[in-house]
């Protein structure tokens, strides 16, 4: 870690950075960076292996799954598998991708908005019942969802939403996880003086939230949005229960991929999984940048 590293403005990327010359101590600290990189790199390799292996199988035929010792290099079947994937009439893969995109985008935007509002209120506004509501939010997370599938199905039936996309959207527009996360982040990151000043300034609460609080919450909002998007994208059990194979989400569709009786076609499934993972990685590459930065910039400017 170096102080210079926290000031990208002073050290143009690409050029080797030199210590700012604040003394030997700082230089010694900076030299720890290789260790940090090594630790991160090891974690990365461990993290990547199953994904890599999945891609390898996607480029081969299904019997490669059970090969021992395991196959570790790609084969030449990816184009053929891709053709089978998009040509599979029963799986509706393209529709599944689109449905999942619609559901994930809607859910994550809604979660970020409503959970930021509620989290901020519970962390920073004073009102009767605040502690009770906070505890209630945490308790909602403890509700085991599995047996709740039946009553939720009954509810969906009553609403006429079985098989409809809103059935995998509307029940998930808020999350206790999100509220609690934003509450904790706001408690930690939003200075009371800032709010006090805004109030004295005559800002309405909503205005304060929008103009003062949101910018501070941004890193947490980005993380919450990304995690929610990914969670919705990968949701499977509820989608299978409430949707139908002709109008699936992408994970449901992948599970439908099969061409033979009583045997799973893993190369086909993993080709589907590869195409389903790609959008998430792109999304993460685009929005992940926003996770770090603003406050550091602020600190540099100050």
């Amino acid at each position: 870690m170096t102080v210079t590293a926290d000031r990208p403005a002073q050290a143009p990327a690409g050029r080797p950075r030199r210590p700012a010359g604040r003394g030997r101590r700082l230089r010694r600290l900076r030299e720890r960076a290789p260790l940090t990189y090594a630790g991160l790199l090891l974690t990365v390799l461990l993290s990547l292996f199953p994904l890599w292996w999945m891609l390898v199988i996607a480029t081969r035929t299904t019997d490669a799954v059970a090969r021992f010792p395991p196959v570790l290099l790609p084969g030449g079947e990816f184009a053929a598998n891709t053709g089978r994937l998009f040509g599979n009439a029963g799986a509706h893969f393209t529709l599944g991708l689109w449905n999942s995109f619609v559901a994930s985008a809607t859910v994550s935007l809604s979660v970020v908005l409503f959970c930021s509002l509620a989290g901020f209120a519970l962390a920073k506004l004073r009102f009767p019942g605040r502690n009770g509501f906070t505890v209630a939010v945490v308790v909602t997370m403890a509700v085991p969802v599995q047996v709740g599938i039946i009553p939720l199905l009954v509810l969906m039936q009553w609403l006429g939403w079985r098989g409809e996309l809103q059935a995998v959207i509307v029940p998930f527009l808020v999350s206790g996880f999100g509220v609690f996360m934003m509450r904790q982040y706001a408690a930690q990151g939003v200075p009371d003086e800032l709010l006090e000043a805004a109030r004295i300034d005559g800002c309405s609460t909503l205005r304060t939230f929008w103009s003062v609080v949101l910018p501070v919450l941004r890193p947490a909002m980005v993380v919450l949005g990304l995690l929610t998007f990914m969670q919705t994208w990968n949701e499977f059990i509820w989608a299978v229960a409430v949707l139908t194979p002709d109008n699936p989400t992408v994970q449901f569709s992948i599970n439908q991929l099969n061409e033979s009786a009583y045997a799973r076609d893993f190369s086909l499934m993993f080709t589907g999984a590869a195409y389903a993972t790609l959008p998430l990685l792109i999304l993460f590459a685009v929005f992940g940048r926003r996770l770090v930065g603003r406050i550091m910039e602020g600190a540099v400017k100050a």
């Binding site: 994904l51 999945m54 992948i254």
Partner: peptide, 11 residues
């Protein structure tokens, strides 16, 4: 770091 979270459960 987020890849394990998005890797397909089957894989």
């Amino acid at each position: 770091l987020i890849i394990p979270y998005v890797t397909s459960i089957a894989a």
